[in-house]
Amino acid sequence: MMERTPAAATRTRGDRRSAFDRFVEWAHLRASQAPMFVTCMAVIVLWLVSLPMWSDLKEWQAVIHTVAAVVTLLLVVLLENASRRADEAMQEKVNVLAEALAALMTSSAADDPELREAVRTLRDAVGLEERH
């Protein structure tokens, strides 16, 4: 089982992300903004304008396909990493909220067996998330 660090504790320790994680966050931010779209459009326009410079039409097409494939592969890897980290952060927040709700329900469940059962179910659900 993975050891869980409370979210508040990770914020007080500062930025302990790896250089790759910081790069992924930077790339994710840049890839999701208008300048990236404009850059892609500029590459396509330059590619279209370059047609007269190529003697072979198949080579001209291969250039854009290769560039697009490489950029797509890199962006998919970076964006999947960013998405995974965002999912993990969201799950941590949901787990913290569920634990707080379970604690609140426990304090009110002394005389209510139905509420005690709901607390047990909630704690079991949170426990399942910890194992993933």
Rank of each mutant, 00 (worst) to 15 (best):
A110N: 04
A62Q: 15
S55N: 14
L29I: 04
L73P: 01
A125D: 08
N95Y: 01
R120K: 11
C40N: 15
H65A: 14
V126Q: 05
A19S: 08
E99S: 07
M2I: 02
A100N: 10
H65F: 14
A69Q: 09
L75A: 13
V96H: 03
V94R: 08
L48E: 02
V63P: 04
R4P: 03
H132A: 09
S18P: 05
R116I: 00
I64G: 07
D56V: 15
P6K: 06
A110K: 09
H132V: 08
S55M: 06
V63K: 07
I64K: 09
T72N: 06
I44Q: 05
E59M: 14
V76K: 07
L115M: 12
A42C: 12
F20K: 03
E3W: 00
T39N: 12
N81L: 14
L57W: 15
L128N: 00
V63Q: 13
N95W: 01
M90C: 01
A86L: 12
A27L: 10
L29N: 10
S83Y: 13
A34N: 05
L79R: 06
A68R: 05
P113F: 11
A9N: 02
N81S: 14
L97A: 12
S55H: 13
A19K: 07
T121G: 00
R16D: 13
V43W: 04
S83K: 12
D87F: 13
E25W: 02
V45G: 13
M90T: 08
H28I: 00
S32Q: 11
R131S: 02
V77N: 05
S18V: 05
M53S: 14
V67W: 14
P52D: 04
S83G: 14
G127N: 08
L29F: 06
A7P: 01
E80H: 06
C40A: 12
E59N: 15
E129K: 00
A27M: 10
D87G: 04
M105D: 09
R13A: 14
L48K: 06
T106V: 02
F23S: 00
C40Y: 13
M1H: 09
L73V: 15
M41F: 15
K93Y: 11
V96E: 15
T106D: 15
R4V: 12
E88V: 09
L57F: 14
R13P: 01
A102R: 04
D15E: 03
S50Q: 08
M2L: 07
D87I: 05
L51I: 11
Q61W: 15
L97G: 08
E130R: 11
A125R: 12
A62C: 07
A103Y: 01
A118P: 00
V71W: 04
Q33V: 07
A102E: 06
I44K: 03
T12Y: 07
T72E: 07
R4Y: 10
L128S: 00
M36L: 10
S83Q: 15
S32P: 00
P52V: 11
V24A: 14
S107V: 00
G14M: 03
H28L: 02
A98I: 04
H28M: 01
D21L: 04
L51M: 12
L51R: 12
A27V: 02
M90F: 11
S50Y: 13
S18K: 03
A98C: 01
W26S: 08
P113L: 09
V24Q: 04
